[in-house]
């Protein structure tokens, strides 16, 4: 029955809003943008209590779709498990992608405000703000520019983009990640001390796992056989045992707690049981 009802609603929407092209499509898009702006400012005019109630209703409905789609019983249609709501997964995924892209505008706005103020008032670090604007504009220009394959301009565009992307962004990100290696060494050197029995045990386990990861460590016990009882004393076997028999169950146990905690928090947010807008005042 639910399936029929959903199908009828979907069919009504399809009849009422057929796909548009050309000028009509652009007019509809413009109209939607105007409607979006009106709704946005209209929401600002609402009283906080009414706004929070509206947020609660929208939150509940948005969550309800995925909850129902997951829990409603399914039947096999064309070899795929399907229920009344499954057909809307693709449109919902597209909707989510569009909403995610809108965040880009917010990000650019925030960065422009912060760096714009610094730059205009020549505050300390204005040079970094200038660098930011320069590279944002360069990256956006050469990233968005349409490429006509095989033309000279397209080749120049590709070359500049390659300099910015490979020579700039990739190298900088790689550098930041490699810095972690230095921090890991200094943090390990500072933190590992044989203060008590537990710390000593932890350190012994760390040594075995570290040695088990590299050939220099494996070389130490290479003289032991690869089969039979003595093979258990090989460093890579001990390391594997620690990772799969000690580490994995511990991670799994922590995972159960985290999973239930996540479920509880999600439930509270979905049903707006949290207090206030994060999370102090009663709604």
């Amino acid at each position: 029955m639910l399936r029929n009802m959903v199908d009828e609603i979907a069919a009504w929407f399809a009849r009422s809003f057929p796909p548009q092209k050309g000028l009509t499509l652009w007019l509809i898009l413009m109209g939607l943008i105007v409607a979006y702006v009106v709704i946005f400012f209209g929401l600002q005019l609402l009283k906080p209590r009414a706004r929070k109630s509206l947020i609660a209703v929208v939150t509940f409905l948005a969550g309800l779709f995925y909850a129902l789609e997951f829990f409603l019983p399914t039947e096999l249609i064309d070899g795929k498990e399907t229920n009344a709501l499954t057909r809307f997964l693709v449109p919902m995924s597209e909707f989510a992608q569009i909403v995610a892209v809108l965040a880009l505008g917010l990000g650019i706005y925030s960065l422009t405000m912060i760096h714009g103020k610094t730059l205009l008032r020549f505050r300390t670090g204005w040079f970094y703000s200038l660098t930011f604007f320069t590279f944002m504009i360069l990256m956006a220009t050469f990233g968005i520019m349409v490429e006509e394959p095989f033309s000279r301009e397209a080749q120049i565009n590709r070359d500049i983009r390659s300099i910015l992307f490979v020579g700039g962004l990739q190298a900088l990100e790689g550098t930041m990640f490699s810095i972690i290696a230095f921090y890991i060494v200094s943090a390990a050197y500072r933190a590992f001390r044989v203060r008590n029995a537990e710390a000593s045990l932890l350190m012994a386990a760390a040594f075995i796992v570290m040695l088990g990861q590299v050939y220099a460590g494996q070389f130490l016990t290479n003289w032991l056989p690869t089969e039979g009882a003595l093979s258990n004393l090989r460093i890579e076997t001990m390391s594997d045992w620690l990772l799969t028999r000690i580490n994995a169950p511990a991670v799994r146990a922590v995972g159960f707690g985290l999973g239930v905690g996540l479920l509880a928090t999600a439930l509270r947010i979905w049903l707006s049981l949290e207090r206030g807008s994060y999370f102090d005042r009663e709604v």
Partner: peptide, 21 residues
Amino acid sequence: IGDEFYAATAFLTREPTLVGS
């Protein structure tokens, strides 16, 4: 550590909703 992360608000605020949860 672990699910203490999700318990933190209950410990901090002692709000009935969070403690019950």
